[in-house]
């Protein structure tokens, strides 16, 4: 068993030679491409992450911009609506005022017209009444005055006329 703990120096030499050879060859054939690929991937991941972060920042900026724009738009719409409401109110008042004025004017005109019409009507009525009463009086008079009365009346008239105008000799009396 002492062979177990008696180092064989030749094997030590083989080991060192083998190991140095492996280090030299493997660092060129294996570890270099491996680490190269890994670094490339790490760089790619880093780049991707940066790109993603930039994109996110841009998106956030865009979102903020849009929100600001939306708020501005809302405010504008609000102000426009208010303005429109005020204008409409004014317009309405104006229209009502005008309508009221027009109505008043119409009423005024109508009143005047009515007055004129009424005056005319009353005048016409008066004429008509006068005419009618005249006619009625004529009829009544025609009926009431008989021949005798007529003669008497005529004679009295004549006498009166004679008195007034003595030159006129009528011959009677």
């Amino acid at each position: 068993m002492e062979a177990l703990i008696r180092p064989e120096l030749g094997l030590t030499f083989w080991t060192i030679a083998c190991f140095i050879l492996l280090v030299v060859l493997l660092s060129k054939t294996a570890w270099k491409p491996l680490l190269h690929a890994v670094e490339e991937r790490e760089r790619g991941i880093k780049h991707d992450r940066q790109t993603a972060e930039t994109a996110r920042a841009e998106a956030e900026q865009l979102k903020a911009d849009l929100a600001a724009q939306l708020a501005q738009l809302k405010a504008e719409v609000h102000s426009r609506l208010d303005e429109a409401r005020v204008t409409a109110e004014k317009e309405k008042d104006l229209l009502i005022e005008e309508a009221r004025r027009a109505a008043a004017a119409i009423v005024e005109t109508a009143k005047k017209e009515i007055d004129v019409q009424r005056a005319e009507a009353s005048r016409e009525l008066k004429d008509k009444v006068a005419e009618l009463s005249l006619l009625a009086a004529e009829r009544i008079l025609l009926k009431q005055i008989d021949h005798k009365a007529n003669t008497e009346l005529a004679s009295r008239y004549l006498a009166e006329l004679e008195k007034e105008r003595p030159g006129l000799n009528l011959g009677n009396n």
């Binding site: 064989e8 120096l9 030749g10 030499f13 493997l26 294996a30």
Partner: peptide, 27 residues
């Protein structure tokens, strides 16, 4: 000195061969 050819050297050689051939191929 005399360099031995032994079982452990053979194993070391196999390992070296695996490292030299298979590892670059795999990578």
């Amino acid at each position: 000195v005399s360099l031995p050819l032994s079982k452990h050297l053979l194993m070391m050689g196999i390992v070296s061969l695996i490292l030299l051939v298979l590892f670059p191929v795999i990578i």
